[in-house]
């Protein structure tokens, strides 16, 4: 399972970079979405893949019975997804505004600030 996930993560990163290297700014956004998903998936895989029970300690016991899933990694990914959502919303607004100003969906038209 880890091997499969490793290939998935690698594929997502590759696709993200490919999309970001295109000239269209819409594809740039798609690339950014893929990139953040790839990072989240990597984090998820790193924390260990197992079908565990929720990490709850039964009443009266001192430790959970049996194998439990790691809740921390899921909390991290949730946080990262929320942050990614906020940033992505901003990026969409930005690109919409940039499109209105520049009137083109082409990175090559946006070289004024380059040196």
């Amino acid at each position: 399972m880890e091997t499969l996930m490793a290939f998935t993560v690698g594929g997502l990163f590759a696709a993200a970079i490919y999309m970001m290297l295109r000239r269209s700014i819409v594809k740039l956004v798609i690339g950014l979405v893929l990139l953040s998903n790839a990072a989240n998936l990597l984090l998820f895989t790193q924390a260990g893949l197992l079908r565990g029970a929720p990490p709850l300690v039964p009443e009266g016991a001192m430790q959970p019975a049996g194998v439990v899933a790691d809740p921390l990694a899921q909390a991290l990914i949730l946080t990262a997804i929320v942050i990614g959502f906020g940033v992505l919303a901003f990026a969409v607004v930005l690109i919409h505004r940039a499109y209105e100003v520049v009137q083109a969906d082409d990175m090559d038209q946006m070289k004024d600030t380059d040196t």
């Binding site: 919303a89 901003f90 969409v92 607004v93 505004r97 209105e100």
Partner: peptide
């Protein structure tokens, strides 16, 4: 507030 701020400004644009 955050979600509606973004949605409304996108819709108004």
């Amino acid at each position: 507030g955050g979600v509606l701020l973004i949605l409304l400004s996108l819709a108004e644009a």
